[in-house]
């Protein structure tokens, strides 16, 4: 049995028919073909699947697609203003070499943006490290991710995003 579901993804209407058990991340990846959001574990620990749902960061492997009915979903694919102009967080990750294999990166970036906003663009290293509790990276040792987020916070503020 399938259930119709409709939501806004990256500003555009998206709909489909899903099973009740279909996860939001499956809907994004398998139904919409938006494979920027990744799945790195099966216990909601790694954070590779983080997206924004109505402005808040959510592990999309821990939410059913039907729970996002009517919601505004933002994924990594929707962040950059244009092909040339990246979001300040994406730019900071690039400038600070905060990614290597790139697999955890979408979730890291989405979590980081939410983190910066929740802390009103003011962060210190200890806060960033604590806030990254829900995102695993095996490549970078976190050093440059922390650096990038600290650099992005004022950049986001001045860009008004």
């Amino acid at each position: 049995m399938t259930i119709p579901v409709a939501m806004t993804v990256n500003g555009k209407p998206a709909s489909g028919k899903v099973e009740a058990r279909t996860l939001l991340v499956q809907f994004l990846r398998e139904h919409l073909g938006m494979t920027g959001t990744h799945v790195g574990c099966d216990t909601s620990q790694c954070g590779a699947c983080v997206v924004h749902v109505d402005g808040r960061s959510v592990k999309s492997c821990t939410m059913l697609a039907v729970q996002a009915e009517g919601a505004k979903v933002m994924t990594i694919e929707g962040l950059a203003e244009s092909a040339e102009k990246l979001h300040p967080m994406q730019e900071a990750f690039r400038e600070n070499h905060a990614l290597q294999c790139g697999f955890c990166t979408p979730g890291m970036v989405m979590s980081a943006i939410d983190m910066v906003k929740r802390h009103n663009y003011q962060l210190d290293e200890a806060t960033v490290r604590r806030e990254l509790e829900g995102n695993l990276c095996r490549c970078t040792g976190y050093h440059n991710i922390v650096k990038a987020i600290l650099a992005a916070a004022p950049a986001m503020k001045s860009a008004g995003v």
Binding site: T35, G36, I76, L86, L99, G102
Partner: peptide, 21 residues
């Protein structure tokens, strides 16, 4: 030199095996 590969990884356009249509 900043990495050439970063742009696709940062915009969700990398192509890993599970992403293949």
């Amino acid at each position: 030199v900043l990495r050439t590969e970063d742009k696709r990884f940062l915009t969700g356009t990398g192509r890993y095996v599970d992403d293949l249509p």
